[in-house]
């Protein structure tokens, strides 16, 4: 399968902040590739380097075999870019914005006159296209930005956190649209810190954390690779510490249980990693009965991408998010990106 995007040993620092330490991955032609990681992991910086908005300090970036560093203009021609914060000129109508975009990509008048109505139709923008973009809702803005990104029929569409701040319905519309896009043959590279988004959409993904790729593969490969099943147990809705510890001791002695973690953030619920066994749940319930503990809820599941992330970094994506949120200086980062 032909390679659409190749990123090799990418490095990028802003001042003394190292945003990307060493990122490598390849996106195959015609697939949806997900870049998953918490905020501040280096996703946006990677995308900015790919879209020629930032010059990498080191490494290789190629789109369709063309180097983004040696030949940025050719790469700009091949990429469609949908930024996280949709920057639109509020005074322009959607139609005027698309016409500006068409001129920036040097579409001839004839092509412009067929492409714009085509995309307006596909994205359901008919009722909005002649209104000022300042009146648009978040979902409509995103759709307009998709139209703008696809106007020149790019080989690869790059979306940076496309569903942040969107309502559930707009999110579903976007997901279905991206699947349709892939069906038509366009390669899609999408970043997200939503596990379920990448799980639902991506054919393959790379998980990145603190500026490095920690794993790459299909969602099922990554999940299978860490093995075992996950069991979540709540003894009570809010379990006292001592009861949780008592249960932990007894459950750790079961032969099929590999690990028991008390999740204090979730009212002392217990997270178990177990070997895939048919009657794991009933055996757990029995052992709890044996020491007179009730079960409030008990569920078994296949490992999720969050478990993959947890196994690789020792923390859940949610924890990483919270940690990142408290240490990040968003204002400063925006200033850096303006440079």
């Amino acid at each position: 399968m032909a390679v659409a995007v190749l990123i090799e040993n990418l490095q990028k620092s802003y001042g003394d902040v190292c945003a990307v330490k060493d990122i490598s991955f390849t996106v195959n032609q015609g697939e949806i590739f997900g870049l998953l990681g918490p905020n501040g992991a280096g996703k946006t910086t990677t995308i900015r380097c790919l879209c020629t908005l930032a010059k990498p300090d080191g490494g290789k970036i190629e789109v369709g075999g063309v180097s983004a560093i040696a030949n940025p203009r050719a790469v700009r021609n091949r990429l469609g870019y949908v930024a996280q914060e949709v920057a639109i000129d509020k005074v322009l109508t959607g139609q005027e914005l698309l016409e500006l975009q068409a001129a920036l990509y040097h579409l001839p008048a004839k092509e412009r006159k067929t492409r714009i109505p085509q995309l307006v139709e596909v994205l359901g923008l008919k009722d909005y296209i002649n209104k000022k973009t300042g009146t648009y809702s978040g979902g409509i803005r995103k759709r307009l930005d998709l139209a703008a990104g696809l106007l020149h029929q790019p080989e690869v569409l790059v979306l940076d956190e496309p569903t942040v701040g969107l309502d559930i319905e707009s999110r579903m519309v976007l997901w279905n649209f991206l699947r349709e896009l892939k069906q038509a043959g366009t390669t899609v590279l999408i970043t997200s810190h939503y596990l379920e988004e990448i799980d639902a959409l991506a054919d393959r993904l790379a998980i990145i954390d603190k500026g490095v790729v920690i794993d790459e593969g299909t969602p099922s490969e990554l999940k299978a690779q860490i093995g075992g099943d996950r069991v979540t147990l709540r003894i009570r809705e809010f379990t006292p510490q001592e009861e949780a510890e008592k249960a932990q001791n007894i459950l750790e002695s079961l032969p099929f249980v590999e690990q028991v973690i008390i999740n204090t953030a979730q009212g002392n619920s217990l997270n178990l990693i177990v070997q895939s066994e048919a009657n794991a749940l009933s055996q757990i319930e029995q052992s709890l009965n044996g020491i007179n503990l009730p079960t409030f809820s008990l569920a078994q599941s296949r490992p999720s991408l969050d478990d993959v992330y947890l196994a690789a970094t020792g923390r859940t994506l949610m924890d990483a998010e919270i940690a990142a949120a408290s240490t990040r200086d968003i204002k400063k980062e925006q200033k850096q990106q303006m440079k």
Binding site: Q118, V122, Q153, E155, Q183, A184, T186
Partner: peptide
């Protein structure tokens, strides 16, 4: 149905 409006066109580019 495959929508041709969404297909890439490297040749045109």
């Amino acid at each position: 149905k495959i929508n041709s409006a969404l297909a890439p066109n490297p040749r045109i580019t």
